[in-house]
Amino acid sequence: MKQGRLAWLKHLVLLPLAGLFAFPFYWLLVMSTGRTSDIFGSPPRLIPGTEFFANLGRLLESVNFLQAFANSAVVSISATLLTVAVAALSGFVFATFRFPGRNWLFGILLATMTLPTGVMLVPTLQIYVDLGWINTYLPLLVPGAASAFGIFWMRQAARESVQYEVIEAARVDGASFLRVFWHVGLPALRPAIAGFTVFQFMWNWNEYLWPLLVLNDSNLYTLPVALQQLNGSYGTSDYPVVMVATLLATIPLIVLFLLFRRQVMSSVNSGAVKG
């Protein structure tokens, strides 16, 4: 009985909160189905309109949406897999293996997160030019492949969920380095890997500045660059089209989240103990 009342109380807190969080997304949905004059009318329209396909038509007319979508998918998937793989392995090793200089190396890694990277734009672009990487996807894949943030996260997750006895047992059994990672590390890191994958994919998916600077050929454009083409020199005039575009661009992120949500949530320990 007490349990039931408590759950009811939880919903009383969570439900209005969730409504507040979802509202701007809902409004994005409404805006993408209306006209500019609906969006800014008084009172503002709060139920979806019927203009979605008209807006979509204007979007497809002015931007090569499908091509950019495909490009973004290729770049974001490759970049994310690379980053997550490197982060999982490096983070796992940092957390569970001992080797000389480990703490120093990890300290350096942490310190790089505070470096003023914003102003490194100029020399970094020069490096890409010298490497002949302009107009390729390499600048979007390689430099970001090892993320200090990701390695840090995976290290912390491994410290929580990897059981030292399991590793010792595996080593006594003569399991190789990679086998330990594969059979002990990966299962234990599953929730963190799933969470990091969702975020890393999202950051890659939304990246604007570097694709703009390194890609010259419009056929190679990723989605954010292509969508920026909708604006003029002074700003947006056609709000509904921009809204349709951002809404469509959001769908892969939501799908990914829904797919990975269970991985983030489900308990790892029952599995990890069994190996």
Binding site: M31, Y239, T246, T250, L253, L258
Partner: peptide, 19 residues
């Protein structure tokens, strides 16, 4: 709930600014 709380993360900043 998890999904609803996550929505702001994926909502494009352009749309967020307008909202």
């Amino acid at each position: 709930y998890q999904t609803l709380f996550f929505l702001p993360q994926v909502t494009s900043i352009v749309a967020v600014a307008i909202v």
